[in-house]
Simulated assay, not measured.
Amino acid sequence: MNSISFHPNRFDAAIVDLDGTMVDTLGDFAASLNRMLADLSLPAVEPAAIQRMVGKGSEHLIHSALVHVMAPTEGDAADARARALFERAWERYQHHYLAVNGQHSAVYAGVIDGLKALRAQGLRLACLTNKPTSFAKPLLAEKGLDGFFELVFGGDAFERKKPDPLPLLKTCEALGTAPARTLMVGDSSNDARAARAAGCPVVLVTYGYNHGEPVRAVDADGFVDSLAELAAA
């Protein structure tokens, strides 16, 4: 960790991202996307490629996967065809994701200790993710994380998603806390950019999904290799 102070009096609340921050959900994404693609008679996409697509919401993930598997044969036309197939793809993806949600995912080591530490410091906690709320809440419950959070907001809760600051500002408003006293804990540039624009301090984990880019190159106030480091801080 660097630069940011975790003195208990500095923060009133923390907003915590879900995918890549608390839970490794790459297996759920891969299972759902590849079942969706099979329904559309399209080839599968490899997990390494999926990892680079995660973080901007399910709509972006689905469109990116469609373009990825069609581009080798359809070239520039892949984007247009992906848009044409999107509604069917979205329906099949929802069907499969709800069926597998949590079955191919695992809570990262240190997450429970980190959340307990934040609570022990008197911070109120909210989960804010670009994952649809109907996916996020069952996943938190499945992994035993739901009891830590007063509020859970998915990517469909507000008009815009991270990296737009609106979801963070609305979450701070719902918590009744000032952005400057509300810590954002995430795994990617989406979280950091949203936090910077909203006026929230931000710490990123080093193990998550950052679109295939080095996370330590992101403008953030600190980095942790495990949320358990928040306990030490």
Rank of each mutant, 00 (worst) to 15 (best):
L61Q: 08
M184Q: 06
K137H: 12
A197L: 13
Y207K: 11
M22E: 06
T182C: 13
G208M: 04
L183A: 11
L85H: 00
E87N: 05
A99H: 11
E91Q: 11
L66Y: 02
D113A: 12
G147M: 03
R124A: 09
T171I: 05
A78E: 06
A31S: 00
K170S: 13
P167W: 12
G144R: 04
N130Q: 03
Y97A: 01
D191R: 15
A89K: 00
S32K: 04
I15E: 05
L230A: 12
L145C: 12
G57K: 05
V215H: 12
A198G: 03
A77N: 08
Q103T: 02
T21I: 03
L175C: 13
D76K: 05
T25W: 06
D113K: 11
L37T: 11
M70T: 00
A44N: 04
L61G: 04
N2M: 09
Q103K: 15
V152T: 08
R52I: 04
G27P: 09
L40A: 01
G57E: 07
R193I: 14
L140F: 04
D79W: 15
T206V: 03
K143S: 12
A38H: 06
L40M: 03
M36C: 03
Y93A: 02
L42F: 05
V45I: 02
Q121C: 03
L18Q: 07
A38M: 00
S3K: 07
A71Q: 05
H63F: 05
L175G: 13
P43M: 00
S3W: 03
A14K: 04
M1E: 01
P47W: 06
L66P: 06
A84N: 06
H60I: 10
M70F: 10
L140E: 01
D221Q: 06
A99S: 06
R193F: 15
G212C: 10
E173R: 14
A109Y: 14
T206R: 11
D146K: 02
F158D: 14
F223E: 02
D19W: 01
P163Y: 12
S105I: 12
D17P: 09
A13E: 09
T177K: 13
R35C: 00
N2A: 04
V23D: 05
Y108K: 13
G122Q: 03
A80Y: 13
A14R: 01
N190C: 09
M184K: 15
V218T: 09
A141I: 14
K116M: 14
E46R: 02
A197Y: 14
V203E: 10
L227Q: 06
A192G: 05
T206C: 04
R35T: 02
T129K: 07
S105R: 09
G155D: 02
L227H: 10
V215I: 05
L139P: 02
R88W: 10
D156W: 08
L42R: 02
